[in-house]
Amino acid sequence: MAREPDGFDVLVSDLRALAPAVEPGAAEVDAVTAAVLARLGAAPPAPERARGRALPGDVAAWFARRRRRLAVALVVVLLALTGVPAVRAAVADWFGFAGVKVKLTPEPRSSSSPLATPSPPPSVAPGRLAAVRHLVAFVPRLPAALGPPDGVEVSADRKVLSMSWNDPAAGVVRLDEFDGGLDYGFAKTAPGAEYLDVGGNGGLWFERPHEVVWLLGGTSRHDPPRLAGHTLIWEQGGTTLRLEGDLTRERAVAIAESAVPVF
């Protein structure tokens, strides 16, 4: 307090003591960053005005481990979805795994869509695996433990291959595959995730229901969020695989480890 006007020391220190009363509430403070990001997302400075979402920059640093370029739209979408109050928390809790962005949240939002049966992404080429596998730029993998898929689809941008099975025990089981080096995939907000070993590679197991957003293409197209059930994500030979269904962790890992390339 070096330069207070003469003779007002006590007055000034008392005035300063009033300051905590005008401290904004934590909720308002937290809301600012998310709101600003959302605003930036909603008011694109660049010509790239894809469906109202902008790409003011590059959030690669958020996922420094993988250094992937990623549209800010992704982050905005998630903030909006989860109502995440603090971006500090978001920065701290976000992590990337094989092209999947995960944000840990205390609980999934109860108001989300109900736990949905896995459904494949929009497709251009439903059909047999042999018929569509040349549409994707990576080598698809097929889990021998599940046998031939009942449904095969390729996303509209041909970057995600999805297969589904009607499993007698687990009901619909879905497997999504995409090039894990891509700058998008899907994003999840989850109350918890567990690292585990899948045939010598790292995997992530989501035991509890969690929100999933498809982020199809860098142009910010995305599907509405839905709650997903048990999910295993792992990486194999540069391809990211995501298995979802009413599976135990042991069975999911067994299925994952049975996946072999389809040439």
Binding site: P24, V32, T33, G57, D58, V59, A61, V87
Partner: peptide, 20 residues
């Protein structure tokens, strides 16, 4: 340069004073 993390950090550093 378009680094959103840096932008967030800036916002976080100064949002309290701005709100006050």
């Amino acid at each position: 340069a378009g680094d959103v993390e840096a932008l967030c950090e800036l916002v976080e550093r100064h949002r309290v004073v701005a709100l006050r």
